[in-house]
Amino acid sequence: MLTNLINGISLGSVYAIIALGYTMVYGIAKMLNFAHGDVIMIGGYAAFCTATYWNWPPAFAVLFAIVVCTALGIIIEKLAYKPLREATSLAVLITAIGVSYFLQNSALLIWSSNPKSFPNMISIPSITVGSAQISGTAIVTILANIVIMIALTIFTSKTKVGKAMRAVSEDKGAAQLMGINVNQTISLTFAIGSGLAAIAGVLLCSAYPTLMPTTGAMPGIKAFTAAVFGGIGSIPGAMIGGVLLGIIEIFGKAYISTQLSDAIVFAVLIIVLIVKPTGLLGKPVREKV
């Protein structure tokens, strides 16, 4: 029971970190970046290559993955999404799916479809609490999630740039009139989201050490679900949605059925959206004239 709960929170923490990328980009650019899951996969490969082929110590491998993904996020935004700033949301959505396939197939070309075995990067021993054994990976994942959550909350509520980000997400035109460079702000959001994706990639691959070009796809969709579940656009919503989703998934696997666990996850999403269409913490859109 306790083991399952910890595992659920740990898996959910990975979803939450990924969901933050979806939710921040959605909040600012009002677009669903479906390539986000594949950025995770690239992050995984970046860490894998540096650690396995070049024998870098884990901390540097993670740092390298963050740099690669941050740069990738900025490049994707600049090349694929920025030219479509004025386009319909459908065009942007299709482009995002295109970018997703592009990344997956590039990975297929570079690393082939053979699964790679991800090296063990987290060397913290597991601890035993009562009857439950908590792995080092789970501890690190949950702590990483908490640290990221606190850091992002401080960033968006206390810093000038963070406040500007919230201003842009609410009204781009008015933000421009304040002297805020909207394009730079969007670029920064993609950078942060993608950097977090790299961390999520390493944590995910540490818990489930098989790395393939499609590794990011399913967690990406689940994290997107978590973001919607918590209320898309809301940072604490992504966090709560992610953790709840992880717990539901692990408990579904443990007590109901392994095959049905994904079905249960999505069924919960559907029920939540029927009861509260904006998600758990989503704010209804309100216009005051």
């Binding site: 000038k160 406040k163 500007a164 201003a167 609410e170 008015a174 933000a175 304040m178 805020i180 005051k288």
Partner: peptide
């Protein structure tokens, strides 16, 4: 008006002085 309705009054003023 287009004030930032989710930001506080003071944060709105801070945004005005962004530059």
């Amino acid at each position: 008006r287009r004030i930032f309705s989710q930001l506080t009054v003071e944060e709105n003023l801070q945004m005005g002085a962004y530059t």
